[in-house]
């Protein structure tokens, strides 16, 4: 490992020395979840793209997925005979995440044109927190099989396609990406949901910051 590390650092320095252009790219979008069809988020991200040549860019990205609340009904019961046996309970799930990744933008088509189609591959760390809240008469009733807040931080991978259009002052792009859930075993709790495998639809703009 000690022998390899200087080589890795040297290779990276050579890469950054060979960078032709650096872009900063704000991104916004909408996200669905393959594992839980009712979980949805609004994405915001910022990434720095290091363009090596017209075929390849290295990307560092930070993304926050803001949860859209999912409200559903659950069941609460009581043994107290002076109350109705059943009462409805409102369950609100807030599925959010944060990720930091390093990735690759590999141009598949249109290398020398104003319209490019690229392959995106990212790996990094993601933190998912699926918050659960209940609203019901907690003094007199008990929820059957309640969900609980779950969170996990671990590595993940993602991949997707991107259409990019070159403009005079920058680049406009649209992406479709699918990501894995954070690595690790299944949730050690009888949850009605799994960790998210996001499918996101993003739009962004490339602003050149160094030439």
């Amino acid at each position: 490992m000690k022998k390899i590390l200087p080589l890795v650092i040297a290779a990276n320095l050579l890469f950054f020395a060979a960078v032709a252009q650096v872009y900063i790219e704000p991104i916004a979008g909408y996200q669905l979840d393959i594992n839980n069809k009712d979980f949805k988020q609004i994405n915001s991200a910022v990434q720095i793209a290091f363009k090596k040549n017209n075929r390849y860019e290295f990307i560092l990205a930070a993304q926050v997925s803001w949860p859209l609340s999912y409200v559903s009904g659950d069941s609460a019961f009581t043994a107290n005979s002076s109350l109705p046996v059943y009462a409805p309970a409102e369950k609100t799930i807030l599925p959010g995440s944060f990720s930091f990744s390093a990735g690759h933008r590999i141009v598949l088509a249109g290398r020398n044109s104003a319209n490019k189609l690229s392959l995106l591959i990212n790996t990094g760390f993601t933190a998912q927190k699926i918050k659960v809240r209940y609203a019901y008469d907690k003094n007199n009733y008990t929820i059957l099989n309640p969900d609980q807040t779950q969170q996990r931080v671990n590595i993940y991978v993602s991949g997707g396609l991107e259409y990019m259009h070159l403009l005079k002052s920058g680049r406009l792009f649209f992406q479709i990406n699918i990501a894995s859930p954070p690595a690790g075993k299944q949730i050690k709790y009888p949850s009605s949901f799994k960790f998210m495998a996001p499918l996101n639809f993003n739009a962004g703009y490339s602003i050149p910051i160094k030439k």
Partner: peptide, 9 residues
């Protein structure tokens, strides 16, 4: 605190 969930599993 200290007790399990109500379940039917």
């Amino acid at each position: 605190d200290g007790i399990a969930i109500f379940s039917n599993t």
